[in-house]
């Protein structure tokens, strides 16, 4: 099962490489003499990508243990490290639900940026992601989210002259009010 899981990324990349190779083989262009076409370079990369995946798949299948092969950096580090420091680190615990929440919140932030405008969207995002990151002091979360969004808005709109999204009505009125308050035109 662990071997199958180890093979998954290489299988996916190999399949994607095959599909993209097929796509590259069908680029529509008019050849100019014996000049290499626009498909030559991507196809060469895709062949190399597929070869690297196959090499890795074969090495995973031939591996007798689940241990990953070492990189040169690992070998040097292991050689240099004092004996009592070796094999000390344990793999950190994983929280897939936190990760999924973080990704969902970030996607939501980008999706709602045009509608809610920078200020409201950023306040909500800072508060939600900080809370999702297991920080529990609501007073700090509230202060940081409002303060952070205001500081970002001031720096980027007033100092750097960046046109951040103001959102759609009725949310735009909040952005416009703050811009007026900060003297942003």
């Amino acid at each position: 099962m662990s071997r199958l899981r180890a093979l998954l990324p290489y299988g996916l990349v190999l399949a994607a490489a095959a599909v993209l190779y097929f796509t590259a083989s069908h680029f529509a262009y008019t050849p100019r003499g014996d000049r290499p076409g626009p498909d030559v370079w991507p196809r060469a990369i895709l062949i190399l990508l597929a070869v690297a995946c196959i090499v890795r798949i074969v090495s995973v299948l031939r591996r007798t243990s689940d241990r990953e092969p070492e990189s040169l950096q690992d070998v040097i580090a292991a050689d240099a490290r004092p004996a009592d420091e070796r094999d000390e680190a344990a793999p950190p615990r994983q929280y897939p639900l936190l990760l999924a929440t973080g990704i969902a919140l970030t996607i939501g932030y980008v999706a709602l940026l045009g509608t809610l405008g920078f200020f409201i969207d950023t306040v909500l995002y800072i508060a939600a992601l900080t809370r999702a990151g297991r920080y529990r002091r609501w007073s700090v979360i509230t202060a940081v989210s409002f303060g952070g969004a205001l500081v970002f808005m001031f720096i980027f709109m007033k100092v750097v002259y960046l046109s951040l999204p103001i959102g759609r009505p009725p949310f735009a009125s909040v952005s416009l009010l703050l811009m007026q308050w900060m003297g942003i035109r």
């Binding site: 990508l49 690297a52 995946c53 890795r56 090495s59 990953e68 092969p69 990189s71 040169l72 950096q73």
Partner: peptide, 12 residues
């Protein structure tokens, strides 16, 4: 070659 991870992974 000198980066972290396996050689094949680095090439990928």
């Amino acid at each position: 070659a000198l980066g972290g991870g396996s050689l094949a992974n680095a090439f990928i």
